[in-house]
Amino acid sequence: MTDSAYTPTRLLTVETATRPATITRELTVTRDGEPVGYDAEGVAALRNGGYWPAVEPSLLVRLDAAGRVREEVPLPGDIRATITSNGLEGIAVSGDAVWVAVQRPLKGETTTRIGRYAHGTWSWLAYPLDAAPTGWTGAPGRSF
Rank of each mutant, 00 (worst) to 15 (best):
W52E: 10
G87W: 13
A97P: 04
A40R: 12
A118Q: 11
G115R: 05
V102R: 06
Y38I: 13
A40C: 14
A17L: 08
V93R: 10
T16R: 10
L46Y: 00
R62F: 00
S94E: 10
S85K: 13
A118M: 03
K107N: 14
L75Q: 06
M1L: 14
A44T: 13
A97K: 07
Y51H: 12
L63D: 15
T30R: 09
V98F: 09
K107L: 14
T137Q: 10
E71I: 09
H119Y: 04
T121Q: 13
L106T: 07
H119F: 00
A5S: 08
A5L: 07
T28L: 07
F144T: 07
D3V: 03
P8K: 09
P57R: 12
R62S: 05
T9Q: 08
V29K: 02
V93I: 14
A21C: 04
L12K: 07
P74Y: 01
T134I: 00
A65I: 00
K107Y: 11
W124R: 03
Y51G: 13
T16D: 03
K107T: 14
G108W: 14
T137V: 13
P35E: 00
W99M: 08
G37E: 13
M1R: 10
V43Q: 11
H119C: 00
G135A: 09
L106Y: 04
V55N: 04
M1Q: 12
S94H: 09
P128L: 09
L59G: 03
V93T: 15
T30Y: 04
T2E: 01
W52I: 14
T84D: 12
W122K: 10
Q103K: 15
W124A: 05
R104Q: 14
D32C: 13
R70I: 05
Y38T: 07
G33P: 02
Y6C: 06
T137P: 14
V98S: 07
L11K: 04
P105F: 05
Q103C: 12
D64F: 00
F144N: 10
P53N: 04
E26Q: 10
W136Q: 01
V29M: 03
V69N: 05
A44V: 09
Y127P: 03
A45G: 11
R104I: 09
T82H: 13
S4K: 15
E15Y: 04
A126P: 03
T2S: 05
I114M: 15
G67D: 05
L60N: 01
P133M: 01
R142D: 02
R31P: 02
A45F: 02
I91V: 15
V14L: 02
E34K: 11
T7W: 12
A101Q: 01
W52Q: 05
T18Q: 12
V14D: 01
W136G: 02
G67W: 06
G95N: 06
G49T: 05
G90Y: 12
A54Q: 03
L12E: 07
D130N: 14
T18F: 01
A132T: 12
G33Y: 02
L63C: 15
G138N: 11
I114E: 13
R113C: 09
G95V: 08
V100N: 08
E41K: 02
V102E: 10
I79A: 06
W122Y: 15
L63E: 14
E71R: 09
T84V: 14
P53D: 08
V14A: 01
R19F: 09
D32W: 13
A17M: 06
P105I: 05
D39E: 12
